[in-house]
Amino acid sequence: MGQFWSTTILDYFIALGVVLGGSLLGGVGAFLADRAPMDAMLGLSEQLKIWALVAALGGTFDTIRAFETNILGGQIGQVGQQLIFVLSAFFGAHTGTLLIRWLFQGSFH
């Protein structure tokens, strides 16, 4: 498996793990803090999406810098790769949110 695919899969699962782990442990924390755990988990799964994306990509500035370097250097292929990494991380985070919703609400909506 090439470097590109392994990074894509890694980004997907990192984002998924951030959302799932953050929400599940956040639910335990919410229970300890005298708040409704399910409601807290659903809220956290939405709030953590953007942070999961950032964590998977290894920091916003690096990605933006890579975009800048590649665009200015005329390497459009590299720009496309970076976009796929971002999309992969986004889908990972979104899958995490959907899973939490499905687990607690019984539906994806």
Partner: peptide, 17 residues
């Protein structure tokens, strides 16, 4: 704790409500 949350989360939520 996560497992208990899974099992009794709905009940806990309704009790909180």
């Amino acid at each position: 704790a996560i497992g208990i949350n899974f099992l009794y989360g709905h009940k806990l939520d309704s009790l909180y409500l």
